[in-house]
């Protein structure tokens, strides 16, 4: 574990340096925004500097951090629940042909049901508690993770499985040396997709169902016609998502999948 943290820290500077291209393209987007804002009414599209100043104000007076923390807690706990249950059930379903065939239509139903539908159900079941956004996030994140885990197990090379049997690998070693490394290459992209979904869904759920969190704050700015405030919250949420994905998940993924890139 300490080793992983150390390699993560050691790889960070080079990784960040490699991110200049991405940063440049983001700055270009910002320039486009600024350009557009010169022609539009500030109520429709305030310029980025006003928005960033608003965000700075929100962050310095301390409100933003607590709202972000509340939203983050809900999104991450729903995501974590999905990650655990979805990965485990998906892998189990992948082990059996029958189970994967049965699970497929269920997952299609889950994917097809709009998150807003789940949200309404969750509001009926859980009221204004944390359970509503958490449940909505859980249901929205579940399908991609479940499918990724199932595909990962199903696509495992039969020859390697036979080899593992011939060398009498005990179940735990089979899990850690054979199944997990292969399945992780399917799971990681699914987890990253699901993380993005969790942030979007949690804000939507909060907007409609709770009295605190970023979504609730957005509802307030909307009712006050405060476009700069709304955009400031959106920038905060997107920034938090980018930070988690590119500073945490992406480097971990690179480390875990080093074998793949060295071919």
């Amino acid at each position: 574990m300490i080793g992983v943290v150390r390699t993560w820290l050691r790889g960070l500077p080079a990784y960040l340096w490699g991110g200049w291209g991405a940063i440049a393209s983001l700055l270009l987007l910002l320039a486009g925004w600024e350009f557009a804002s010169q022609w539009l009414d500030p109520l429709a599209l305030p310029d980025p500097r006003t928005v960033l100043a608003t965000l700075h104000g929100l962050l310095t007076d301390g409100n933003a951090w607590s709202e972000l923390a509340i939203t983050g807690r809900r999104a991450l706990s729903g995501f974590a629940l999905s990650l655990g249950i979805g990965s485990a059930l998906g892998m189990l379903a992948g082990l059996s042909m029958t189970a994967s065939m049965m699970a497929r239509p269920w997952v299609t139903v889950l994917v097809g049901t709009p998150p807003i539908g789940w949200l309404v159900l969750a509001m009926l079941w859980f009221g204004a508690s944390d359970g509503t956004p958490m449940f909505t996030v859980f249901v929205a994140c579940f399908p991609p993770i479940f499918i990724g885990a199932m595909q990962g197990v199903r696509t495992l090379d039969g020859q390697l499985r036979e080899m593992a049997q011939a060398f009498a690998l005990p179940p735990l070693q089979r899990l850690f040396d054979l199944y997990l490394p292969h399945v992780l290459s399917y799971l990681f992209p699914a987890w990253i997709t699901a993380l993005g979904v969790s942030w979007k869904v949690v804000v939507m759920a909060e907007l409609l169902a709770t009295a605190d969190g970023v979504g609730a704050a957005l509802a307030v700015t909307r009712s006050q016609l405060d476009t700069a405030g709304s955009l400031a919250w959106i920038v905060a949420v997107v920034g938090a998502l980018l930070a988690v994905e590119y500073l945490l998940l992406e480097p971990v993924k690179r480390e875990v999948e080093r074998w793949r890139t060295l071919a």
Binding site: Q159, L160, E162, A166, F167, A168, L169, D177, H182
Partner: peptide, 26 residues
Amino acid sequence: SACMFQQPRLLPWKSALDNIALGLKA
């Protein structure tokens, strides 16, 4: 007993050393 197959059937995510040691680990 031990087996060798027509294809090497090595684990792509393990170094050659860890692949050789696989059966010993088992």
